[in-house]
Amino acid sequence: MKEIVIKTEKLTKQFGNFIAANEISFEVYKGEIFGFLGANGAGKTTAMRMLCGLSRPTSGNATIAGFDVYRQTEEIKKNIGYMSQKFSLYEDLNILENIRFFGGIYGLSRQEIREKSEKLIDQLGLEMEVKKLVGELPLGWKQKLAFSVAILHEPSIVFLDEPTGGVDPVTRRQFWDLIYEASDRGITIFVTTHYMDEAEYCNRVSMMVDGKIEALDTPGNLKMKYAANSMDGVFYELARGAKRKAD
C-alpha cells in the first residue's frame, strides 16, 4: 500500500456565490509527481492555496503530510515547500543571501545552510554568479534557483504553481530533471502547468474543470479513456466540456 501524503475530501472554497473549488476529493502518494491541470480560472490556484494553508476552506476536509488544513496550518508550513507563479525570491539579495535567508527561516543550522548552499550552487552550476543579485539572473535560472530553495529544508511535499511559465524548452527540460531528482529523494511534487508535454512527465494527472476534478489517472490511462494521441487531446476533450456547461 502506497503512503498517502495529501488527502482531500469534498474540499470546497466559496467566494460569495462563486464556488471556486467544488467538493474536490483526491489522494496523492509519497514521492509521486502529481500534475494538477485545468484551464485558466478552473480553480487550480484556489485549491492549491487551501492545501498550503494560505486560504481557509469553506467546507470539506484535507490533511497534508498528516496535518489538518484547519487546525494545523503552522505544522503544514514546516513540511511543505512552495514556489509561486510570480517569482518568489528576493531580487535585491544575491543567490547566497537568498539561500541563507530561506534556510534560516526554516530553522536550518548554519552548518546545514553552508553545506546545502555549496551543493546547490554546484548542482546548478552557479559558482560564478553567487555574488550576483538574483534580479540580474535570466528567468530560467531564477526559476531553477527558486525550486532548489523551495526544497532546501527537505519538505515532504513541494507545491509548484506554473513553475515553468515563460521559460525556454531547454531550461524547462533541466527544470524537470531537478523535479525528478527531488521525487527520487522521496519529495512529493504537486505541480500545475499549462504545458501538456510536461503533463506527460507526471506520474498521475488530475484535470480540473469549473471547480471540479473531472478526471484523475496516469497520462497513459487518460489518453486511452479519451481516445487521444497526446495529453493535448485529453485536455481539449475535457476543457470543451467546460464550455458546454457555460452555455
Binding site: L54, K77, S84, F87, S88, G107
Partner: peptide, 13 residues
C-alpha cells in the same frame, strides 16, 4: 506587490 509576501506566508515564520 512583488509577491514575496506570499512566499513568506507559506513559511513557518
Amino acid at each position: 506587490e512583488i509577491g514575496t509576501i506570499e512566499q513568506i506566508n507559506v513559511t513557518p515564520i
